[in-house]
Design a protein around this nucleic acid. Structure first.
Length: 248
DNA sequence: AAAAGTCACAACCGCTGTACA
DNA sequence: ATGTACAGCGGTTGTGACTTT
Protein backbone atom coordinates (compact mmCIF):
# COMPACT_ATOMS: atom_id res chain seq x y z
CA UNK A 1 0.00 0.00 0.00
CA UNK A 2 2.03 2.80 -1.25
CA UNK A 3 0.55 6.02 0.02
CA UNK A 4 2.58 8.10 -2.38
CA UNK A 5 1.04 6.64 -5.48
CA UNK A 6 -0.57 9.31 -7.57
CA UNK A 7 -2.81 8.91 -10.57
CA UNK A 8 -1.98 10.64 -13.82
CA UNK A 9 -4.86 12.95 -12.96
CA UNK A 10 -3.00 13.98 -9.84
CA UNK A 11 -5.36 12.24 -7.46
CA UNK A 12 -3.72 10.47 -4.58
CA UNK A 13 -4.06 6.72 -4.19
CA UNK A 14 -3.04 4.20 -1.61
CA UNK A 15 -3.14 4.26 2.15
CA UNK A 16 -4.63 7.21 3.94
CA UNK A 17 -2.58 9.34 6.28
CA UNK A 18 -3.67 10.60 9.69
CA UNK A 19 -3.87 14.07 8.25
CA UNK A 20 -6.15 12.98 5.45
CA UNK A 21 -8.35 11.11 7.89
CA UNK A 22 -8.67 14.20 10.03
CA UNK A 23 -9.57 16.37 7.07
CA UNK A 24 -12.18 13.92 5.88
CA UNK A 25 -13.65 13.45 9.34
CA UNK A 26 -13.96 17.17 9.87
CA UNK A 27 -15.53 17.62 6.48
CA UNK A 28 -18.16 14.95 7.05
CA UNK A 29 -18.86 16.24 10.54
CA UNK A 30 -19.38 19.68 9.10
CA UNK A 31 -21.35 18.92 5.97
CA UNK A 32 -22.71 15.48 6.75
CA UNK A 33 -22.53 12.32 4.70
CA UNK A 34 -23.39 12.44 1.05
CA UNK A 35 -22.49 14.78 -1.80
CA UNK A 36 -19.30 12.80 -2.06
CA UNK A 37 -18.28 14.50 -5.27
CA UNK A 38 -17.94 17.70 -3.27
CA UNK A 39 -16.06 16.14 -0.39
CA UNK A 40 -12.54 16.23 -1.87
CA UNK A 41 -12.93 19.92 -2.58
CA UNK A 42 -14.54 20.75 0.74
CA UNK A 43 -12.06 18.73 2.72
CA UNK A 44 -9.07 19.87 0.74
CA UNK A 45 -8.19 16.30 -0.09
CA UNK A 46 -6.42 15.20 -3.20
CA UNK A 47 -8.56 12.08 -3.38
CA UNK A 48 -11.35 10.93 -5.61
CA UNK A 49 -14.89 10.92 -4.24
CA UNK A 50 -15.01 7.13 -4.21
CA UNK A 51 -11.91 6.93 -2.13
CA UNK A 52 -13.30 9.46 0.35
CA UNK A 53 -16.61 7.69 0.62
CA UNK A 54 -15.00 4.33 1.12
CA UNK A 55 -12.60 5.62 3.70
CA UNK A 56 -15.42 7.16 5.67
CA UNK A 57 -17.75 4.19 5.43
CA UNK A 58 -15.18 1.54 6.16
CA UNK A 59 -12.90 3.23 8.61
CA UNK A 60 -13.79 6.66 9.91
CA UNK A 61 -17.49 6.37 10.53
CA UNK A 62 -18.33 6.31 14.25
CA UNK A 63 -19.25 3.07 16.00
CA UNK A 64 -17.45 0.86 13.52
CA UNK A 65 -16.72 -2.42 15.21
CA UNK A 66 -13.22 -3.82 14.87
CA UNK A 67 -11.82 -7.19 15.68
CA UNK A 68 -13.03 -10.72 15.29
CA UNK A 69 -16.58 -11.54 14.38
CA UNK A 70 -18.58 -13.14 17.15
CA UNK A 71 -20.21 -16.50 16.64
CA UNK A 72 -23.58 -14.82 16.44
CA UNK A 73 -22.33 -12.52 13.75
CA UNK A 74 -20.81 -15.37 11.77
CA UNK A 75 -24.02 -17.30 12.09
CA UNK A 76 -26.04 -14.38 10.85
CA UNK A 77 -23.69 -13.81 7.94
CA UNK A 78 -24.01 -17.42 6.91
CA UNK A 79 -27.76 -17.37 7.03
CA UNK A 80 -28.12 -14.06 5.30
CA UNK A 81 -25.65 -15.07 2.63
CA UNK A 82 -27.60 -18.25 2.10
CA UNK A 83 -30.65 -16.17 1.43
CA UNK A 84 -29.25 -13.09 -0.24
CA UNK A 85 -26.01 -14.19 -1.84
CA UNK A 86 -23.21 -11.68 -2.15
CA UNK A 87 -25.32 -8.73 -1.11
CA UNK A 88 -22.72 -7.51 1.29
CA UNK A 89 -24.24 -4.14 2.00
CA UNK A 90 -27.54 -5.76 2.90
CA UNK A 91 -25.85 -8.32 5.08
CA UNK A 92 -23.71 -5.69 6.74
CA UNK A 93 -26.83 -3.68 7.39
CA UNK A 94 -27.95 -6.39 9.74
CA UNK A 95 -24.66 -6.42 11.60
CA UNK A 96 -24.35 -3.27 13.70
CA UNK A 97 -20.91 -1.74 13.45
CA UNK A 98 -19.81 -3.92 10.58
CA UNK A 99 -19.22 -2.63 7.10
CA UNK A 100 -19.94 -4.33 3.82
CA UNK A 101 -16.23 -4.44 3.16
CA UNK A 102 -15.64 -6.12 6.52
CA UNK A 103 -18.27 -8.72 5.84
CA UNK A 104 -17.02 -9.32 2.34
CA UNK A 105 -13.46 -9.68 3.50
CA UNK A 106 -14.48 -11.98 6.30
CA UNK A 107 -16.50 -14.10 3.95
CA UNK A 108 -13.72 -14.32 1.40
CA UNK A 109 -11.01 -15.11 3.89
CA UNK A 110 -12.84 -17.23 6.44
CA UNK A 111 -16.13 -18.57 5.25
CA UNK A 112 -15.79 -19.11 1.54
CA UNK A 113 -12.78 -21.24 2.18
CA UNK A 114 -14.92 -23.49 4.29
CA UNK A 115 -17.34 -23.82 1.44
CA UNK A 116 -14.62 -24.86 -0.92
CA UNK A 117 -12.71 -27.10 1.44
CA UNK A 118 -14.80 -27.83 4.50
CA UNK A 119 -12.23 -30.27 5.83
CA UNK A 120 -9.70 -27.59 6.31
CA UNK A 121 -10.04 -26.05 9.72
CA UNK A 122 -9.64 -22.37 10.09
CA UNK A 123 -7.10 -21.46 12.69
CA UNK A 124 -9.17 -18.85 14.42
CA UNK A 125 -12.78 -19.52 13.74
CA UNK A 126 -14.22 -22.12 16.00
CA UNK A 127 -17.68 -21.99 14.58
CA UNK A 128 -18.67 -25.26 13.01
CA UNK A 129 -20.26 -24.67 9.70
CA UNK A 130 -22.75 -26.60 7.74
CA UNK A 131 -23.15 -24.77 4.52
CA UNK A 132 -25.30 -26.02 1.74
CA UNK A 133 -25.92 -24.54 -1.64
CA UNK A 134 -29.27 -22.90 -1.82
CA UNK A 135 -31.12 -20.78 -4.26
CA UNK A 136 -30.43 -17.17 -3.67
CA UNK A 137 -33.05 -14.50 -3.44
CA UNK A 138 -32.35 -12.33 -6.40
CA UNK A 139 -34.37 -9.20 -6.13
CA UNK A 140 -36.09 -8.23 -9.29
CA UNK A 141 -37.65 -4.95 -10.13
CA UNK A 142 -41.32 -4.51 -9.75
CA UNK A 143 -43.55 -1.55 -10.07
CA UNK A 144 -44.68 0.36 -7.09
CA UNK A 145 -45.14 3.81 -5.79
CA UNK A 146 -42.35 6.27 -6.41
CA UNK A 147 -43.16 7.79 -3.05
CA UNK A 148 -41.30 4.85 -1.57
CA UNK A 149 -43.68 4.92 1.28
CA UNK A 150 -43.90 1.43 2.66
CA UNK A 151 -47.33 2.00 4.11
CA UNK A 152 -48.77 2.99 0.80
CA UNK A 153 -46.99 0.46 -1.31
CA UNK A 154 -49.14 -0.58 -4.20
CA UNK A 155 -52.02 1.51 -3.06
CA UNK A 156 -53.66 3.81 -5.55
CA UNK A 157 -50.45 5.21 -6.82
CA UNK A 158 -50.73 6.24 -10.38
CA UNK A 159 -47.14 7.29 -10.49
CA UNK A 160 -45.08 4.15 -10.57
CA UNK A 161 -41.58 3.24 -11.37
CA UNK A 162 -39.30 0.30 -10.89
CA UNK A 163 -37.48 -0.11 -7.65
CA UNK A 164 -35.30 -2.88 -6.47
CA UNK A 165 -36.78 -4.87 -3.65
CA UNK A 166 -33.54 -4.42 -1.80
CA UNK A 167 -34.35 -0.82 -1.41
CA UNK A 168 -37.61 -1.74 0.14
CA UNK A 169 -35.92 -4.17 2.44
CA UNK A 170 -33.62 -1.37 3.45
CA UNK A 171 -36.58 0.84 4.09
CA UNK A 172 -38.20 -1.86 6.11
CA UNK A 173 -35.06 -2.43 8.05
CA UNK A 174 -34.36 1.19 8.68
CA UNK A 175 -37.90 1.80 9.74
CA UNK A 176 -37.74 -0.92 12.32
CA UNK A 177 -34.12 -1.28 13.21
CA UNK A 178 -32.61 2.14 13.37
CA UNK A 179 -31.34 1.32 16.78
CA UNK A 180 -30.04 -2.17 16.41
CA UNK A 181 -30.46 -4.46 19.34
CA UNK A 182 -29.40 -7.93 20.19
CA UNK A 183 -32.28 -9.46 18.25
CA UNK A 184 -31.77 -7.10 15.41
CA UNK A 185 -31.67 -9.81 12.79
CA UNK A 186 -34.78 -11.40 14.10
CA UNK A 187 -36.63 -8.12 13.94
CA UNK A 188 -35.52 -7.66 10.42
CA UNK A 189 -36.84 -11.00 9.30
CA UNK A 190 -40.04 -10.43 11.12
CA UNK A 191 -40.56 -7.05 9.55
CA UNK A 192 -39.54 -8.31 6.14
CA UNK A 193 -42.06 -11.08 6.25
CA UNK A 194 -44.69 -8.87 7.74
CA UNK A 195 -44.15 -6.46 4.93
CA UNK A 196 -44.30 -9.19 2.32
CA UNK A 197 -47.60 -10.31 3.74
CA UNK A 198 -48.87 -6.78 3.74
CA UNK A 199 -47.87 -6.27 0.15
CA UNK A 200 -49.54 -9.49 -0.81
CA UNK A 201 -52.70 -8.22 0.75
CA UNK A 202 -52.69 -4.90 -0.97
CA UNK A 203 -51.24 -5.91 -4.25
CA UNK A 204 -52.38 -9.04 -5.92
CA UNK A 205 -49.51 -8.91 -8.36
CA UNK A 206 -47.59 -12.16 -7.97
CA UNK A 207 -44.37 -10.58 -9.07
CA UNK A 208 -43.23 -9.15 -5.78
CA UNK A 209 -41.21 -12.08 -4.66
CA UNK A 210 -40.75 -13.55 -8.04
CA UNK A 211 -37.25 -14.50 -7.12
CA UNK A 212 -36.20 -18.02 -6.45
CA UNK A 213 -37.05 -18.05 -2.81
CA UNK A 214 -36.14 -21.47 -1.67
CA UNK A 215 -38.26 -23.44 0.73
CA UNK A 216 -35.00 -23.93 2.56
CA UNK A 217 -35.50 -20.43 3.85
CA UNK A 218 -37.89 -22.05 6.19
CA UNK A 219 -35.31 -24.37 7.57
CA UNK A 220 -32.67 -21.72 7.59
CA UNK A 221 -34.66 -19.33 9.62
CA UNK A 222 -35.88 -22.03 11.90
CA UNK A 223 -32.30 -22.86 12.60
CA UNK A 224 -31.68 -19.21 13.19
CA UNK A 225 -33.92 -19.36 16.18
CA UNK A 226 -32.00 -22.02 17.95
CA UNK A 227 -29.92 -19.55 19.82
CA UNK A 228 -32.77 -18.97 22.22
CA UNK A 229 -33.02 -15.42 21.00
CA UNK A 230 -36.77 -15.37 20.85
CA UNK A 231 -39.67 -17.63 21.55
CA UNK A 232 -42.40 -18.81 19.24
CA UNK A 233 -40.25 -19.63 16.28
CA UNK A 234 -42.31 -22.62 15.34
CA UNK A 235 -45.11 -20.20 14.63
CA UNK A 236 -42.68 -17.99 12.82
CA UNK A 237 -41.42 -20.71 10.52
CA UNK A 238 -44.98 -21.85 9.99
CA UNK A 239 -45.76 -18.33 8.85
CA UNK A 240 -42.92 -18.51 6.42
CA UNK A 241 -44.26 -21.75 5.09
CA UNK A 242 -47.65 -20.14 4.65
CA UNK A 243 -46.03 -17.24 2.92
CA UNK A 244 -44.15 -19.56 0.65
CA UNK A 245 -47.36 -21.35 -0.29
CA UNK A 246 -49.07 -18.04 -0.78
CA UNK A 247 -46.42 -16.81 -3.12
CA UNK A 248 -46.52 -19.95 -5.15
C1' DA B 1 17.39 -17.00 11.27
C1' DA B 2 15.78 -16.69 6.76
C1' DA B 3 12.84 -17.79 2.96
C1' DA B 4 8.46 -19.10 1.41
C1' DG B 5 3.76 -19.35 1.99
C1' DT B 6 -0.55 -17.67 3.80
C1' DC B 7 -3.65 -14.48 5.89
C1' DA B 8 -6.10 -10.20 6.65
C1' DC B 9 -7.79 -6.13 5.20
C1' DA B 10 -7.55 -1.52 3.14
C1' DA B 11 -8.16 0.33 -1.11
C1' DC B 12 -9.07 0.56 -6.11
C1' DC B 13 -11.75 -0.41 -10.30
C1' DG B 14 -15.54 -1.10 -13.14
C1' DC B 15 -20.23 -1.64 -13.43
C1' DT B 16 -25.13 -0.69 -12.38
C1' DG B 17 -28.98 1.90 -10.71
C1' DT B 18 -31.03 6.32 -9.77
C1' DA B 19 -32.00 11.18 -10.11
C1' DC B 20 -32.48 14.95 -12.75
C1' DA B 21 -32.23 18.22 -16.55
C1' DA C 1 -37.44 9.58 -24.03
C1' DT C 2 -32.72 10.40 -23.62
C1' DG C 3 -28.29 11.67 -21.84
C1' DT C 4 -25.36 12.79 -18.02
C1' DA C 5 -23.70 12.90 -13.40
C1' DC C 6 -23.56 10.88 -9.20
C1' DA C 7 -23.91 7.28 -5.58
C1' DG C 8 -23.34 2.82 -4.31
C1' DC C 9 -22.06 -1.93 -4.79
C1' DG C 10 -19.35 -6.16 -5.50
C1' DG C 11 -15.13 -8.09 -7.38
C1' DT C 12 -10.45 -7.85 -7.23
C1' DT C 13 -5.81 -6.43 -6.06
C1' DG C 14 -1.79 -5.01 -3.33
C1' DT C 15 0.79 -5.27 0.61
C1' DG C 16 2.11 -5.62 5.49
C1' DA C 17 1.77 -9.00 9.11
C1' DC C 18 2.02 -13.40 10.53
C1' DT C 19 3.01 -18.43 10.28
C1' DT C 20 5.26 -22.38 8.64
C1' DT C 21 9.11 -24.85 6.86
Amino acid sequence: MNSSITKSSGVRKGAWTEEEDTLLRKCVEKYGEGKWHQVPLRAGLNRCRKSCRLRWLNYLRPHIKRGDFSEDEVDLILRLHKLLGNRWSLIAGRLPGRTANDVKNYWNTHLQRKLISPHRQDRKCKVSLKITENNIVRPRPRTFSSTKNIVSLGRNDSNTNTVDKDERCKQISTSTCDNPTADDGVQWWTSLLANCNEIKEVDESPSLLHEEISPTINGGISNCMQGGQISGWDDFSADIHDLWNLLN
